[in-house]
Deep mutational scan, measured.
Amino acid sequence: MALNTPQITPTKKITVRAIGEELPRGDYQRCPQCDMLFSLPEINSHQSAYCPRCQAKIRDGRDWSLTRLAAMAFTMLLLMPFAWGEPLLHIWLLGIRIDANVMQGIWQMTKQGDAITGSMVFFCVIGAPLILVTSIAYLWFGNRLGMNLRPVLLMLERLKEWVMLDIYLVGIGVASIKVQDYAHIQAGVGLFSFVALVILTTVTLSHLNVEELWERFYPQRPATRRDEKLRVCLGCHFTGYPDQRGRCPRCHIPLRLRRRHSLQKCWAALLASIVLLLPANLLPISIIYLNGGRQEDTILSGIMSLASSNIAVAGIVFIASILVPFTKVIVMFTLLLSIHFKCQQGLRTRILLLRMVTWIGRWSMLDLFVISLTMSLINRDQILAFTMGPAAFYFGAAVILTILAVEWLDSRLLWDAHESGNARFDD
């Protein structure tokens, strides 16, 4: 018995066209964080690309023209004298008006014999932002004059995390709450300039795509075929072959399989920071003279006294001054041990922890910024005066060393310790 099946006739004509040209192939790229070699397709503007294995951002879609970056830099340069030299806060102490600005706080630190601690604050609040705007201006002028731009481009990517104007702005709020127990506070004209400078700096850093600047100024022929001998440069993120001198053909720094002496430098910085954190938390970090009496505060006791007036601000200072430094030390110690013992479990967790400490590390400088600003506000000789204690130097040095330890660690070593050939990683 035959089955009668109805015929289905399409209502619209289906047209099949042959592909007349070869589909576009992607360029081969190595991930600078996990060293995976993959094919990167062509990316349009405002599109980002991520590593298929570790999800690290390979290409950032946010990109401004150099002219727009230069305009932002010149605007920031105009704001800087007002943000640093004009009063941020006014207080009335014992019937006398006192003005506080950024430069005055750094000068008070240096004047009291601790120039190293003052230079830490100076670099993060004044030096690094000033280098940022002058570097962008150098790129703008240098591109037109045919100057060598490689050193500036190499420095810009590392400079971003040292620009800490946003953290200093939080420190202004913390210092205001600490001082309000002794005097009446009012915002100064410099505060508005400083807030504007923070906003412009944040926007500029978020749109400063150094890798795209490398592509514009020093374009290189990408690798179009897969080759395990391809290496990625950690300076400019170019994937290719080393030249005859073993250097990256684009930025001219040595092109090595792994960062040289990464573990040794990381261990040295980490152990030194552990040693410095002990006096930083045991010795007094601030000293207040009130009517001839002397009151010393460690980091913890200062947080407890701050909690009596504002528990939320005390929580912020606790996280930045105690929780973050010790968390960074514990995480980095764990990561280094996992590399030495070739741990194969929990790779995803370790990668996330490394990215976390990379982002939060700079916030530990908050305590030094609060001390710097408070020193310029309260300084009335023996009637009422505020000065920093010996722990300030140890704390600042420990924070900087932990930042350097994270920067010096080559994250690809975590993958080397893991089993080879993993296309995915999980716990």
Score class of each variant (00 low, 15 high):
Ser301Pro: 09
Arg250Leu: 04
His252Met: 03
Ile43Glu: 09
Ser39Asn: 10
Thr374His: 02
Ala18Glu: 14
Phe38Trp: 09
Leu132Ala: 12
Ile185Val: 06
Ile177Val: 07
Trp92Asp: 02
Tyr50Asn: 15
Leu278Asn: 09
Trp214Tyr: 06
Gln344Arg: 10
Gln108Ser: 14
Ile19Thr: 07
Gly85Met: 06
Trp107Asp: 15
Leu337Asp: 03
Met375Tyr: 02
Cys251Leu: 00
Leu270Phe: 05
Ser39Gln: 08
Ser135Leu: 03
Thr110Gln: 15
Arg62Thr: 09
His261Gln: 10
Ile96Leu: 08
Asp243Glu: 07
His90Ile: 11
Leu413Glu: 10
Arg259Gln: 09
Trp92Leu: 05
Leu263Asn: 05
Met375His: 10
Lys57Glu: 14
Leu89Lys: 05
Pro284Thr: 05
Ile319Arg: 00
Gly171Leu: 00
Val189Arg: 12
Ser135Val: 01
Arg250Phe: 02
Leu337Lys: 12
Asn209Met: 12
Val133Arg: 00
Gln7Phe: 07
Arg53Trp: 11
Phe82Glu: 08
Phe122Asp: 04
Glu42Leu: 09
Ile106Gly: 03
Ala312Asn: 12
Leu3Glu: 11
Leu145Gly: 01
Met375Asp: 00
Ile14Arg: 11
Asp227Leu: 15
Val16Ser: 10
Lys13Ala: 11
Arg412Cys: 00
Phe341Gln: 13
Lys229Gly: 08
Arg158Gly: 14
Leu306Met: 08
Phe123Val: 02
Ser376Lys: 13
Cys124Trp: 01
Val406Tyr: 11
Leu93Arg: 01
Thr110Lys: 15
Ile287Cys: 04
Ala417Glu: 10
Leu230Thr: 06
Ser176Asp: 04
Pro81Asp: 13
Leu191His: 04
Arg59Ala: 12
Phe341Cys: 12
Asp27Pro: 15
Asn422Ala: 15
Met76Lys: 08
Phe369Pro: 00
His184Lys: 03
Ile136Glu: 03
Val406Cys: 12
Val370Gly: 01
Ala115Leu: 02
Ala280Asp: 02
Ile58Gln: 10
Ser372Arg: 01
Ile360Asp: 00
Leu159Gln: 02
Arg380Glu: 00
Thr202Gly: 14
Pro390Glu: 09
His237Ile: 07
Leu276Arg: 00
Thr349Val: 14
Cys54Arg: 00
Gln55Ser: 11
Gly113Glu: 07
Leu139Met: 06
Val121Asp: 05
Lys160Tyr: 08
Gly105His: 01
Cys34Leu: 00
Ser321Pro: 00
Leu130Lys: 02
Ile177Leu: 15
Glu212His: 14
His340Met: 10
Ala307Trp: 10
Glu157Lys: 14
Ser411Tyr: 06
Trp140Pro: 04
Ile43Ser: 08
Met72Tyr: 03
Ser176Pro: 03
Ala175Asp: 01
Thr239Ile: 03
Leu145Phe: 11
Thr11Ile: 13
Arg247Lys: 03
Ala71Asn: 04
Ser376Arg: 14
Leu271Glu: 03
Ala269Phe: 02
Ile106Asn: 03
Leu377His: 01
Gly346Trp: 13
Leu409Met: 10
Glu215Pro: 13
Gln344Tyr: 12
Pro222Ser: 09
Val195Ile: 12
Gln29Glu: 11
Thr334Ala: 11
Asn101Thr: 10
Val232Cys: 15
Tyr50Phe: 07
Glu228Ala: 09
Pro284Ser: 09
Lys13Leu: 08
Ser364Asn: 00
Gln112Val: 05
Thr387Trp: 08
Ser309Tyr: 06
Leu352Asp: 07
Ile285Asn: 01
Ser119Gln: 02
Ala196Gly: 11
Leu276Thr: 05
Thr204Glu: 05
Thr9Lys: 15
Leu69Cys: 15
Gln344Asp: 15
Leu156Ile: 13
Trp408Ala: 06
Pro390Ile: 06
Arg97Asn: 14
Gln104Lys: 07
Asn143Trp: 13
Gly396Met: 02
His46Phe: 15
His340Arg: 09
Asn281Phe: 02
Ser119Tyr: 02
Ile288Arg: 01
Thr374Cys: 11
Asp27Phe: 11
Ile172Pro: 01
Met72Glu: 07
Met36Lys: 12
Gly396Arg: 00
Tyr168His: 08
His207Ile: 15
Leu153Ile: 09
Val232Trp: 08
Met375Gly: 15
Pro279Ile: 09
Ile330His: 11
Ile383Ser: 02
Ile299Arg: 00
Ile98Val: 11
Asn291Asp: 02
Phe82Gln: 06
Gly246Thr: 04
His237Tyr: 08
Glu22Arg: 09
Glu407Phe: 13
Leu213Arg: 11
Leu88Ala: 05
Leu69His: 13
Tyr50Ile: 15
Asp181His: 02
Pro24Phe: 08
Leu306Gln: 00
Leu78Arg: 00
Val195Thr: 10
Gly302Asp: 00
Val324Trp: 15
Asn4Gln: 10
Gly240Asn: 06
Leu230Asp: 06
Ala405Phe: 11
Ala71Arg: 01
Leu66Gly: 13
Ala269Trp: 03
Cys343Val: 12
Leu373His: 09
Glu157Ala: 13
Asp416Gly: 12
Thr387Asn: 05
Glu407Tyr: 10
Val16Trp: 12
Gly302Thr: 02
Leu282Pro: 04
Thr298Glu: 09
His90Pro: 03
Pro249Asn: 11
Ser308Ala: 09
Glu211Arg: 13
Gln29Ala: 09
Leu263Pro: 03
Leu200Gly: 09
Glu21Gly: 11
Ser321Ile: 02
Gly61Ser: 15
Ala391Leu: 01
Glu212Met: 14
Leu306Trp: 01
Thr11Met: 13
Ala56Met: 14
Leu368Ser: 04
